[in-house]
Structures are given as C-alpha cells and as structure tokens.
Simulated scan of single mutants.
Amino acid sequence: MMKSTVLAAGMLFAAASAAQAHFQLAYTPEVNLEKPAAVPMKFIFWHPLENGHVMDMGDPEALVLVFKGEKTDLKPKLKPITFRGADNEAKAFETVLDIKRNGDYIVALTPKPYFEKSEGSYIQQITKSFINKGGIPDGWDKPVGLPTEIVPLVKPTNVLAGSTFSGVVLSEGKPVADAEIEVEYMAAPPDMKTNKPGKVTAKAPEGGAIVVKTDANGVFSFGVPRAGFWGFAALGTGPAKEFEGKELSQDAVIWVRAFDFK
C-alpha cells in the first residue's frame, strides 16, 4: 500500500474560487452491510454542499462494480431518473447492486463529459464509491485502472470524524504531484424514495471551496471535522485534455463515509 511521506497537507480555503463546486455523486446511504442485500444507488451531478444547482447527466460511458479484482459491467442496469434539487431538476441515473459475498465493493462511474456553458469547457468526473459487507477489508486500497483515480490510504467506509483521511491521486497509474483537490460535504443526502434532497445538515464555509493539494508523491490529507459523506475531486488530473474541440477537465472523484466515534 502506498504511504505518505508527510503527516498531512495543509487545508486551505480558496477564496478565489467563488463558484460552487460541481460534484458527481455515486450514492447509497448504507455502506457497511452485515447481510446480503439489494443496494440501491443514485448517480447525480450536483452541488451537494450548497444543495444547489443540479446538472443534466448524459448517458454514462461506463459503470463497473469491482470485487476481488473482478469487474462487472453495470451499465445495462442503469435507469434514468429525474432528481429535483432545491432550485431545479435534472436528469440522473439509478441502479441496484446485488451484494452477497463478504469484502469490499468499488463502484466506478465514468460519466459523459458535461459542457459547462459559463466556462465554455467540459467536465468529466470519474467517480468511485465503496461498500463493504461483513467488515472484512479486501481491496479498498487497490487501483481499478481508471484513466485517473484517487486510491484511499484510509479505509473509506469507516473514516472516524476528527481523524485524517488520506489518498493518492493517480493519472494512468502514476502519482500526480501538486494536484488541486476540492473537498465537498454532502449536506443534504438524497432521499432514495423521492429523488429529492433530504434535510440540510450543514452550511458552506466562508471563503469558497475547501482545497487541499497533493505532495510530491501524489498524496493528500484532510482532517475530517464531522460525520457524513465527504467527496474529494482531483481537478484536471486525467490524461484527456480536450473533448469535441473544447477544453476538458478530467477529474478523479472519491466519496468516503465518516462516523462519530462513540
């Protein structure tokens, strides 16, 4: 397992980043299972910290479930839905995962690039999330071969609030030094039945987007202040820089679940 050569990277509030953070979600509320289950998942392109604008998703390029190194194609099981945010509604997707055996399951979504009109460029957030069954750690710290991805250095399904989460950013399998990581808190987790935001539990902090950076080994760290779902987006770390003749930011996104220590 890759290890950091530093204890932690400093946390910055990027005042220059006035725009809300786009974040691709791959969400299910329960990430630690004791018994076999049919696990619902929602895929939403949103501003989850501000409970803000929702963006239309195009048909994803790929969706795979990785278990013990084996990949299962989930794209045929995707169904379109409409997610209704606080201000608008947009196209999203859902599926159901069949979780039976003990171990770690990695959901990896490669969405279609999204055209951001205000910037005249595309965004593609290649996103991973994690589920564990039986409490047996098995594979959460392994890359899955995405063009760009964040590999956690802390078990992502039971991060302790008040502790430090770390990960390493890869592009074509190689660490990315000095990468900018936007950090997002899911302040209003989606209601799985209504396809609307749930109760808002936090406000966006002053000073704009929360940002950390990777060190020379591609490693970043962040002190997790509270329980809930936290997202990390490594901006522009993918090898693809252009789509349909326009600039592309190919980002690596990971979602982790933090719990209070009781």
Rank of each mutant, 00 (worst) to 15 (best):
M2C: 05
K3S: 10
K3H: 14
S4N: 10
A9R: 13
A9W: 06
G10E: 15
L12I: 03
F13M: 11
Q20A: 11
H22L: 15
F23R: 07
E30F: 09
N32M: 11
K35E: 14
K35F: 06
A38L: 13
P40H: 10
H47Y: 04
P48R: 09
H53S: 06
V54A: 15
M55L: 14
M57D: 09
P60W: 04
E61A: 06
K68S: 05
K71F: 01
K71D: 03
P76M: 15
P76H: 13
K77G: 01
K79Q: 14
K79L: 03
P80Y: 05
R84F: 00
A86F: 13
E89V: 01
K91D: 02
A92Q: 04
E94D: 14
T95M: 13
V96Y: 15
L97M: 10
D98E: 13
D98I: 02
I106P: 00
V107P: 04
V107E: 09
E116N: 12
S118Y: 02
Y122F: 15
Y122N: 08
Q124H: 05
Q125R: 07
S129H: 05
S129V: 01
I131N: 05
I131L: 15
K133L: 15
I136F: 13
G139N: 06
W140N: 02
D141R: 11
K142T: 07
K142M: 09
I150C: 01
P152S: 05
N158Y: 12
S163L: 05
T164L: 09
F165T: 01
F165H: 09
G167S: 08
S171C: 03
S171K: 02
G173Q: 10
K174P: 00
V176F: 08
V176C: 03
A177N: 07
A179V: 03
Y185I: 09
P189T: 06
P189I: 06
M192I: 12
K193F: 07
K193A: 15
K196H: 10
K199A: 13
K199C: 02
G207V: 04
G207Q: 12
G207M: 09
G208P: 04
V211H: 04
A216G: 10
N217K: 14
N217V: 00
P225S: 11
W230F: 10
A234P: 05
T237W: 02
T237E: 02
T237I: 10
P239T: 12
E244V: 02
G245R: 09
E247R: 12
A252Y: 12
V253I: 07
V253R: 10
A258F: 04
